Measured scan of single mutants.
Amino acid sequence: QVALSRTQVCGILREELFQGDAFHQSDTHIFIIMGASGDLAKKKIYPTIWWLFRDGLLPENTFIVGYARSRLTVADIRKQSEPFFKATPEEKLKLEDFFARNSYVAGQYDDAASYQRLNSHMNALHLGSQANRLFYLALPPTVYEAVTKNIHESCMSQIGWNRIIVEKPFGRDLQSSDRLSNHISSLFREDQIYRIDHYLGKEMVQNLMVLRFANRIFGPIWNRDNIACVILTFKEPFGTEGRGGYFDEFGIIRDVMQNHLLQMLCLVAMEKPASTNSDDVRDEKVKVLKCISEVQANNVVLGQYVGNPDGEGEATKGYLDDPTVPRGSTTATFAAVVLYVENERWDGVPFILRCGKALNERKAEVRLQFHDVAGDIFHQQCKRNELVIRVQPNEAVYTKMMTKKPGMFFNPEESELDLTYGNRYKNVKLPDAYERLILDVFCGSQMHFVRSDELREAWRIFTPLLHQIELEKPKPIPYIYGSRGPTEADELMKRVGFQYEGTYKWVNPHKL
């Protein structure tokens, strides 16, 4: 086992960053958080920038500027975001240094004079007029057009580079997404736009490419001749908990499936790229999406959770019991969808996408189930092999396979070949997804960000279904809070070829 401390991990990262040409360590950078008073800024962006600063992973002359409508001070920003920093008493001095680099400007999102004030403020910072500028839009999409237009007109660096990070949702359907994309691309070049999907920053999602293309053993079996089906799962054990009003506007397909799960599907299904260059990788992902037809209604199961009468606390409440959810809402909190990649490698292999709230566990994984062994000599005792990439929690890679049961006879039983990170790298604290992705933006690497043509294809696949749901308002199937979801989803999976045995229990190697 390799035991690495946080300091050692960050030392390795620093070495990698400083050796590259793309990370300008000594240049002045300004990180501007648009929507600095909001939840995302408070819980994710400010803490992430602090962790990067604490670990010495930001360029040395980096300033952080918050911008929002609320009249706040840096002290206010500190008060609301610091509880999420997880700072230790030993880091007190470092924390003071961090907040000394912070400033805040209040202004409207659609007022040109406010942006001119913001620009004057940035120019007044040390070497601010020639600094590289990175704008993070932690804002609702309704203000994107006004904000990007004003940034472009008043706040661009004339000497350094300018980059803009856009948070999902990128529209509600193909038409609104196209409108937003066309607007942003009329102001910024594609190499300046970073559409963030934080799932692409997760260690195991990034590991998929290495697993596939750096190991000879997987190449020959990664196709329709050997793989019976692919299941991509995202499960949350909690409901909307008072935030249903926002969720109800989008629903589970827009929230998770059309982005996170579809991105994971691309990494499983794509061909080997010409290189690890950002556009070479994204070219292959677009090719996969172009091979997927629009979702067919007979390959869809929609569910909505109801309270568990035997549960406790939140578990007793259904989705419609959330006071922020519109009365009688038919918005799905669970969806199972089957897609097919219609190309030579994957023809006929079902890709089953499942996601839901208020389920029995927290889990995100990719599961490849292989065909049955031909010419069975073990009297149907063999179960199908599976390769599982567990994204969260407890990152893991393992192969479910058959071995001989101890004893006199040739009785096979299920076991696993474990390729888990935790076994080799004991207690290594890896940077989280937002840390990686923000560092990628500083480096100018777009590999783990969504390109406009990729986004367009993703919406093309799901828009007809979303429009049909909005028009017909089908009643989702009720499922109990804390269950596996509607049984109809299991029946759909069985119908397209997935075999669920229920006889195997994964042993978490992190707890051995």
Rank of each mutant, 00 (worst) to 15 (best):
D255F: 08
D255N: 07
D255I: 06
D255K: 06
V256Y: 15
H260I: 15
M264P: 03
L265S: 02
L265A: 11
L265C: 08
L267G: 11
V268T: 08
A269T: 03
M270I: 07
E271V: 02
E271H: 05
K272D: 03
S275K: 06
T276C: 06
T276W: 15
S278C: 13
V281P: 02
D283V: 10
K285C: 14
V286K: 07
L289K: 02
L289D: 01
K290T: 13
C291V: 08
C291P: 02
S293H: 09
E294V: 07
Q296Y: 04
Q296S: 04
A297V: 15
N298E: 11
N299Y: 07
V301H: 01
L302W: 05
G303P: 02
G303I: 01
Q304I: 01
G307V: 03
P309I: 10
G311Y: 04
E314N: 11
A315Y: 10
T316V: 05
Y319H: 03
L320W: 11
L320A: 10
D321T: 09
D322R: 05
D322E: 03
P323D: 04
P326K: 11
R327C: 11
R327Y: 04
G328L: 05
G328Q: 12
T330L: 09
A332T: 05
F334L: 04
F334S: 11
A335D: 02
A335F: 00
A335N: 02
A336S: 12
V337I: 09
V341W: 00
R345A: 11
R345G: 04
D347G: 15
F351P: 02
F351C: 01
L353K: 01
R354Q: 13
R354D: 03
C355I: 04
C355W: 04
C355T: 08
K357T: 10
A358R: 02
A358H: 01
L359I: 05
L359N: 02
N360P: 03
N360E: 05
E361M: 11
E361P: 01
R362H: 09
A364K: 05
E365C: 06
R367Q: 13
V373Y: 15
V373D: 15
V373F: 14
D376V: 06
I377H: 04
F378M: 06
F378G: 01
H379M: 09
Q380H: 06
Q381N: 13
C382K: 11
K383V: 11
R384T: 09
N385D: 14
L387G: 00
V388K: 12
I389H: 03
I389A: 08
R390S: 15
P393H: 05
N394V: 10
N394D: 12
E395V: 10
A396D: 13
V397C: 15
Y398K: 15
M401L: 14
M402V: 08
T403A: 10
K404D: 10
K404G: 15
K405E: 14
P406H: 15
G407E: 06
M408F: 06
F410I: 12
N411R: 12
N411Y: 05
P412S: 13
P412G: 13
E414P: 11
E416M: 10
D418A: 08
D418Q: 08
D418L: 07
L419P: 04
T420H: 10
Y425M: 13
Y425G: 13
K426S: 15
N427H: 11
N427P: 14
V428D: 15
L430H: 13
L430V: 04
P431K: 05
D432F: 13
A433N: 14
Y434N: 13
Y434C: 12
E435H: 09
R436K: 09
I438V: 10
I438N: 00
L439R: 06
L439H: 06
D440A: 03
V441L: 05
V441I: 06
F442W: 11
F442P: 00
C443N: 09
Q446D: 01
H448R: 10
V450Y: 15
S452H: 04
D453E: 15
R456Y: 14
E457K: 00
A458W: 13
A458E: 14
W459V: 13
R460S: 03
R460L: 01
T463C: 09
L465I: 13
L465Q: 03
L465A: 12
L465F: 08
H467W: 09
Q468W: 10
Q468H: 07
I469H: 11
E470H: 10
E472S: 08
E472R: 12
K473L: 08
K473S: 11
P474L: 11
P474S: 13
P476V: 12
I477C: 03
Y479I: 01
I480H: 11
Y481T: 09
Y481I: 09
G482D: 03
G482Y: 02
S483T: 13
G485M: 03
G485Q: 05
P486G: 01
P486Y: 01
P486H: 01
T487P: 12
E488D: 09
E488R: 06
D490A: 13
L492M: 10
K494E: 13
K494H: 10
K494M: 12
K494N: 14
K494C: 14
V496R: 12
V496F: 10
G497S: 15
F498N: 14
F498Y: 13
F498L: 10
Q499K: 12
Q499C: 12
Y500V: 14
Y500T: 14
E501I: 07
E501T: 05
G502V: 14
T503N: 13
T503F: 14
Y504F: 15
Y504W: 14
K505F: 10
V507I: 07
V507Q: 07
V507A: 12
N508A: 10
K511S: 07
